[in-house]
């Protein structure tokens, strides 16, 4: 059976974006199918204004310097790499509607769907994660 990784990104802040894309990209590099469901506070990660909306939590601000020192790539580069790797980016339609956002507000390549779509995919996954 093909390897499959199913990830929910529901947490807030830049931290969630890094955690999510780090594992997602490693999974894709290891020849797994990867899909990420962005919901609740995780939804801004795939918003066009994501880079300006996502901040580190105050207690994690010292990490910014460490990220720079260790050449951790900016989130937009990780998203580009994710799209190149064929990682599915699924925005939670319910959260999109609840926030009054529109499909055009999101980066290219994002799909819009709900819980059942994610679960239909995740039922066949060997690895499921929530960040």
């Amino acid at each position: 059976m093909a390897k499959r990784v199913a990830i929910i990104a529901s947490g807030g802040g830049l931290e969630t974006a890094y955690k999510t894309f780090n594992i997602a990209l490693a999974g894709a590099a290891m020849d797994a199918e990867v899909a990420i469901f962005f919901t609740f506070e995780g939804l801004p990660i795939v918003h066009k204004q994501g880079p300006s909306m996502l901040k580190l939590k105050p207690e994690n601000e010292p990490m910014a310097e460490g990220f720079a020192r260790t050449n951790v790539p900016p989130i937009d580069q990780l998203i580009e790499a994710a799209k190149e790797s064929g990682i599915r980016l699924i925005a939670c339609q319910m959260t999109v509607d609840a926030l009054g956002w529109k499909a055009d507000d999101f980066i290219d390549g994002v799909e819009f769907a709900g819980a059942a779509t994610f679960l239909d995919y995740a039922m066949e996954a060997q690895v499921t994660l929530n960040f």
Binding site: N22, L25, A26, A28, A29, N71, V72, P73, E84
Partner: peptide
Amino acid sequence: SGLGCPMPVVRAKK
């Protein structure tokens, strides 16, 4: 070289 996790394996795959 110079790239942080997970980029080495991402580049390796590519």
